[in-house]
């Protein structure tokens, strides 16, 4: 019998092991739901699977009677637009700021402490300020996500730039690199994989800020819908929305991981 630390599951059993917690969760839900519904057929807390099918039909297929829109896709579109714009802006700030802080000691002295302090401000605490200054529209919601995510990305990317071996930077200079070429041809290319890692890690908080902003001031969006139907204890809407959000977030994470392996093969398996 090998030690437990040396025991690697085969591909098949790894898949089975991975699926196990999901199956247990689903089974527990079905069991709990059936038990509660047997006691009280009007129970709203753990709706039966059939209730989800009805909800999905009325939200994702049929048009809303009042607005004439298909709510599910309206919400998804609105939320994804906010999230993707915010992430794109954050990534841009992250790579430019991270490179400048990481590569140039003067910029590091100038902005390093400032960004570190900025990253410590709880973004939700300044949400009221954003709403007051930027209004209740799209800009404030995107600004909240950027504010919550970008400083962390800047710090992470600049840390990576600082981790590059000094030998490499000196070598590049002996090959005749100017500050500009050193930054663009030696440092920047090595920061892209870390930018992707940073985006993956901050994806969770980006969603958090998105839903928080939508819950407070919005007329459509995944977070808005969840908080709207909360009043009616509509678990048959909330749960599918939560699963859908999870699925979207997971897919984004997976795509980022794929992109990293595809575009930066040299950075894999180290």
């Amino acid at each position: 019998m090998p030690r437990l630390v040396n025991l690697y599951p085969s591909r098949g059993s790894a898949l089975a092991l991975g699926a196990l917690p999901f199956l247990i969760l689903i089974a527990a839900y079905l069991f709990g739901s059936a038990a509660r519904l047997a006691e009280n057929p009007d129970d709203k807390l753990l709706p039966a699977p059939s209730a989800f099918v009805d909800t999905l039909k009325s939200y994702a297929v049929e048009e809303d009677r009042r607005s004439g829109e298909v709510l599910w896709w309206l919400d998804t579109g609105a939320s994804m637009k906010r999230l993707l714009i915010a992430l794109a802006i954050s990534a841009f700030i992250g790579i430019v700021g991270g490179l400048a802080i990481g590569a140039l000691p003067v910029v590091r002295s100038l902005l390093g402490p400032f960004v570190a302090a900025l990253a410590m401000i709880p973004p939700l605490a300044i949400l009221p300020i954003l709403f007051i200054v930027l209004g209740l529209g799209e800009v404030a919601k995107i600004a909240l996500i950027v504010f919550g995510v970008a400083p962390c990305i800047v710090r992470d990317v600049s840390l990576r730039a600082g981790e590059l071996p000094k030998e490499q930077l000196i070598k590049a200079q002996t090959l005749g690199a100017s500050s500009w070429l050193l930054s663009t041809r030696v440092i920047l290319p090595q920061l892209w994989p870390r930018l992707i890692d940073a985006l993956r890690l901050t994806l969770g908080s980006a969603w958090l800020f998105l839903i928080a902003a939508e819950a407070i001031a919005s007329t459509e969006g995944l977070g808005y819908r969840i908080f709207l139907v909360r009043r009616y204890m509509a678990m048959d809407v909330i749960l599918p929305y939560v699963i859908w959000i999870t699925l979207l977030a997971y897919t984004m994470d997976w795509l980022l991981r794929l992109a990293r392996a595809r575009f930066f093969p040299w950075a894999e398996s180290r």
């Binding site: 071996p165 490499q168 200079q173 002996t174 090959l175 030696v186 090595q190 930066f264 040299w266």
Partner: peptide
């Protein structure tokens, strides 16, 4: 440092994101 003085360190002086040929051509 400048291009009139070349250096070879014990390690870490290659550029990991460039292929062998690109490493050589970088100068």
């Amino acid at each position: 440092p400048g291009p009139d003085r070349g250096i070879v360190f014990q390690r870490y002086s290659l550029f990991p994101h460039l292929s062998v040929l690109d490493n050589l051509m970088l100068g």
